[in-house]
């Protein structure tokens, strides 16, 4: 696969490490009364769609950026690539 890095352009997926569902950015707040349940769901329950999936990749053999890649899990087509830090900031983290 080739991941079109938002800063560096197309790079071979072999340079990257895969983590999983991009919702892993959305770490719960420990002070929330339901924190135990939220952490369980955050860590273990995943959307696992056949189709469009937002997921985290780390450019370990590159610029060390974490990326949010929007990819079709059926065709492997990549629709969008963002810097995960920007995504996280936009989410108010």
């Amino acid at each position: 696969m080739i991941i079109d890095h938002p800063l560096l352009g197309p790079r071979d997926a072999a340079e990257f490490v895969y983590l999983g569902d991009a919702s892993l950015i959305d770490r719960p707040d420990l002070n929330n009364p339901e924190a135990g349940k939220e952490f369980f769901e955050y860590l273990y329950l995943r959307d696992n769609p056949e189709g469009i999936h937002r997921e985290l990749w780390y450019h370990e053999q590159g610029d060390r950026s974490w990326l949010v890649v929007t990819r079709n899990t059926l065709t492997h087509e990549i629709l969008n690539v963002e810097l995960a830090r920007q995504v996280a900031l936009a989410m108010g983290r």
Binding site: E15, Q61, G62, D63
Partner: peptide, 10 residues
């Protein structure tokens, strides 16, 4: 310039 991987080496 670019960082990449060659023969398993950064």
């Amino acid at each position: 310039c670019a960082r990449t991987v060659m023969e398993h080496l950064s």
